[in-house]
């Protein structure tokens, strides 16, 4: 339960981190909070030969609001976003989610982008990225690229980040007036992995979007009509089956499908009720 040996590079600037990542290629991993990576290192599920620590890179420590988006830099800790005063007004879904992200004792160091990079299928922040239609800003030492959730998440704990590349920031769009959002989760204990997590957006035009985490290998989303509409229940049921729920120690596949239907319906209704 100790990490295998690695070289450790503490970058003071973004350029240094990118150079170090380029040199080490696919042998390197980025570390900051370490709340997902260090358990993997301790259990030797990950054995990178170089760790590039970006915690002290000041360019990556910013939360910024511009062009209808909130940019969260790769070294921003979850607790910093949780306590960021404009959060509840700009991104109420994420404000509702933050207390469910790990525990207070891991949010204190874990970064927002680190949770996205880990891509656990039951994690809340990847669900937010998909539900809100956010974008991942990636870069290597030569070029930058921007990916939506659908292109970023490749599978369970697998992302599109390439060797030599790192996450620079995540951008979450803020929504126009008349949009409502909601988040609900069922877990065994507060802070445990979600059995099912639901995030919903009720748009001003009366359409809704429901995203579900904890069931399929990556978060999945569906557009839904108003719950009073005749097609709502069928669409939701079809979606619940399409996620391919499996039995595991925590819950049966059937229970998960039931939760997608009941919690999903509640979350959409709550988002509609929150529409301002």
């Amino acid at each position: 339960m100790k990490p295998a040996p690695f070289d450790y590079v503490r970058a003071d600037a973004l350029g240094e981190a990118l150079e170090a990542l380029h040199e080490a290629g696919d042998e390197a991993r980025v570390i900051s909070g370490g709340q997902s990576l260090v358990p993997m290192l301790n259990m030797r599920l990950a054995r990178p030969s170089v760790l590039v620590d970006i915690t002290r890179v000041s360019e990556l420590k910013r939360i910024e609001q511009r062009k209808g988006q909130v940019f969260v830099g790769a070294a921003v800790r979850q607790v910093e976003l949780e306590r960021w005063a404009p959060l509840a007004g700009l991104l109420p879904m994420i404000a509702a989610m933050m207390p469910w992200v790990g525990h207070a004792q891991t949010r204190s160091r874990g970064t927002v982008c680190g949770s996205l990079a880990h891509a656990d299928p039951s994690a809340e922040l990847p669900l937010a990225l998909l539900a809100l239609g956010g974008e991942m800003h990636l870069r290597n030492r030569r070029k930058k690229r921007v990916l939506p959730a659908s292109a970023f998440f490749m599978g369970m704990m697998a992302t599109a980040v390439e060797p030599g590349e790192m996450i620079e920031a995540v951008a979450f769009p803020t929504h126009p007036m008349g949009t409502g959002t909601a988040f609900r989760e069922i877990a065994r204990r507060h802070g445990d992995f979600a059995i099912v997590a639901c995030a919903a957006i009720a748009r001003p035009d009366g359409t809704n979007r429901l995203a579900v985490g904890g069931v399929a290998d990556t978060p999945q989303a569906i557009d839904l009509p108003d719950p009073s509409d005749a097609g709502f229940e069928d669409a939701l049921n079809e979606f619940a089956w399409s996620l391919g729920a499996r039995d595991d120690l925590h819950a049966s596949a059937r229970y998960r499908r039931d939760l997608v239907r009941s919690l999903g319906r509640q979350t959409v209704k709550e988002a509609i009720a929150c529409r301002s």
Partner: peptide, 24 residues
């Protein structure tokens, strides 16, 4: 691996799992 909380210490005033932090 960060689950039990026995190793929690305070780092700059915040509670932190010491087993999930590199000494460096």
């Amino acid at each position: 691996h960060g689950v039990c909380g026995a190793c929690t210490v305070q780092v700059d005033g915040e509670p932190v799992r010491a087993c999930l932090m590199l000494a460096a």
